[in-house]
């Protein structure tokens, strides 16, 4: 029993790995629409959603799928320094290593020079957490995209602030927006079960009744990150109870609501 809880706990570790990507119906549709958008002659694509809706996992999956067929670069961590950002772009797209400072004018000169040289397929730059980029840099990214030498997939958290950024910088550009939403109760159940089954935790799969999943959904609002966090804590708590020989007081044929709520208290989802 100890192994069951321990293995199940590790399934919900908050690690971005494209192998852990769970294929849900709605997410599959979004994934396909995003792939279609990338194949179109667009300068920019806006992909957004609330924190924890699985954007990073989604981008990881997309990056791994795309890089086998085309030139694609994923910037998971934002490069906030402008010079560093241009140098990284120059190196990845044009294979030019620039040791000294590189400003926007110098970078645009490189772009113009390379434009005349070759006409290879437009590379794709995936910018995760783009809300962290400065307004000035975002404006320059827009100008770079206008050269059509590079295509940007910009991923944002959906907040009021990010909506303003989107309006100011991308309103006049030809671009497509795709939104990733929180899971419904049914989707969440599917997500949990698929995730456990991928890790061969079949005993744990049957412990999640509809009632338990509904309670989890009410606590996490279908947010994948919060769900992972809650379920990790839940199985961790079960492990502790087992060690303290308290688990006999709990019914282990299904997940206890009390244990879910205790986990929620511990993780801060419930504020006592």
């Amino acid at each position: 029993m100890d192994n069951i809880f321990l293995n199940s706990k590790n399934v919900f570790l908050d690690v971005i790995n494209n192998k852990d990507y769970i294929q849900l119906d709605r997410v599959s549709v979004i994934y396909q629409s995003l792939r279609d958008s990338i194949s179109k002659p667009l300068k920019m694509i806006l992909f957004y959603g609330k924190p924890g809706t699985g954007k990073s996992m989604f981008l990881s999956k997309l990056y791994n799928d795309l890089r086998q067929s085309q030139e694609v670069y994923l910037y998971s961590t934002p490069i906030l320094d402008e010079s560093e950002f241009y140098k990284t772009l120059a190196q990845d797209i044009f294979k030019i290593k620039h040791d000294a400072e590189l400003n926007f004018t110098q970078f645009m000169a490189i772009v113009k020079h390379k434009e005349e040289e070759d006409s290879k397929e437009t590379p794709i730059i995936i910018l995760d957490e783009a809300q962290l980029y400065s307004q000035n840099l975002m404006e320059k990214i827009r100008l770079v995209s206008d050269t059509r030498k590079v295509k940007f997939l910009i991923t944002l958290h959906k907040t009021e602030k990010e909506d303003i950024i989107a309006k100011e910088h991308f309103q006049t550009r030809i671009w497509e927006t795709i939104e990733l939403q929180n899971a419904t109760s049914e989707e969440l159940k599917m997500y949990i079960q698929k995730k456990l089954m991928q890790a061969n935790c079949f005993d744990s799969v049957h412990m999640f009744t509809t009632k338990a999943v509904n309670r989890i959904h009410s606590l996490t609002n279908g947010n994948y990150r919060d769900t992972n966090k809650l379920l990790y804590t839940l199985f961790d708590l079960y492990t502790v109870y087992e060690k303290e020989n308290k688990v006999s007081a709990l019914k282990t044929n299904y997940i206890s609501i009390k244990m879910i709520e205790m986990s929620a208290i511990h993780t801060g989802l419930i504020n006592v």
Partner: peptide, 13 residues
Amino acid sequence: FNTTELEKQWLQY
């Protein structure tokens, strides 16, 4: 985990 404390908190909740 401090399970005793957690249970108390759960009861309060």
